[in-house]
Amino acid sequence: MIAILYNSVTLSMLISVCLFQNEWLEMRVNIGWVFFGLSGLLFLLQLVIHPLRKFCATFTASALSLVISCSGILLLLDSESVRIIPASIIREGLMINRVPFAAINTAMIAFAVIGLLLILLRRDRK
């Protein structure tokens, strides 16, 4: 379950950053809400589609989703934007607009690292 949640969040961030590139859409839609909506949708899809669920629950799938998401975001954004855009998506989605980007970035990095470690440790236990 943790792995499926992890994949949903990481891949949703990449899709949200892609959507953010469309100025027309970004001006009209809260991309933060799209991010959380997509996370929920991807989570459900991974749960419902049985063959997908088996693979998605593995450490390999989570590591892969993190690599794909990070690479995609780094390709789409420059060094200044990468510190701001993903954090602004989370901030707008949670409507915590006074929380500094640095705090959200720290939370995101912690989620990525600790999440992956938890998935790895859980796998080792099996």
Partner: peptide, 27 residues
């Protein structure tokens, strides 16, 4: 709003409670 120091917008200033409150260079 630091978001619009790196991405484009048509809003310079919007009320933070308004529909475009977070779509502006300044709230």
């Amino acid at each position: 709003n630091g978001k619009y120091l790196v991405s484009p917008t048509k809003h310079a200033l919007s009320y933070y409670k308004g529909g475009n409150g977070e779509k502006s260079i300044m709230r």
